[in-house]
Amino acid sequence: MSRLSLVQWINTNAVAFGSVLQIGDSNQVILRSKAIALQRQYEFFDTRELPMTFPVFTKPIPKPNFDDEPMVFHKLNECPTISVRSIRTLGISSSSAVHIGSTKLVQTEVRIKHIRQLAEKGEKDASHRRAD
């Protein structure tokens, strides 16, 4: 028997980019997201510019094995509840989860490529290069 989760008050401003705010029990939560975070000195954006071909998006991420050793798990719930009076979060983002209730499996993965582009000294405005 799993425990009961009691949360009296929750306030969240934003849930974005493959994230979840789950109220209630679940069986599986599996979240995946990929992002190119491009910071530029001047405003210029083109969706055709950067395909998702960077190695960070394809390289396998090694995961720890938990099945290597057989485990006998005993759980004794002396108190059947977990109680929280209030939760306040500003943002839940990029394959993240806030989960109130019990679950069996949570599996998340995020891959981020971060690029910064600055103009050379003397180059002031790139607006003439802006895409249509």
Binding site: K59, L90, S96, T103, T108, E109
Partner: peptide
């Protein structure tokens, strides 16, 4: 909490298995 980001988890409850992975390339 200000932010829960990049494969993070806030869990009020029980779970059997939790696997969180994050790759950040800069």
């Amino acid at each position: 909490i200000i932010g829960v980001t990049s494969s993070s988890l806030v869990l009020v409850g029980d779970s059997e298995t939790i696997q969180l992975a994050s790759a950040f390339d800069t």
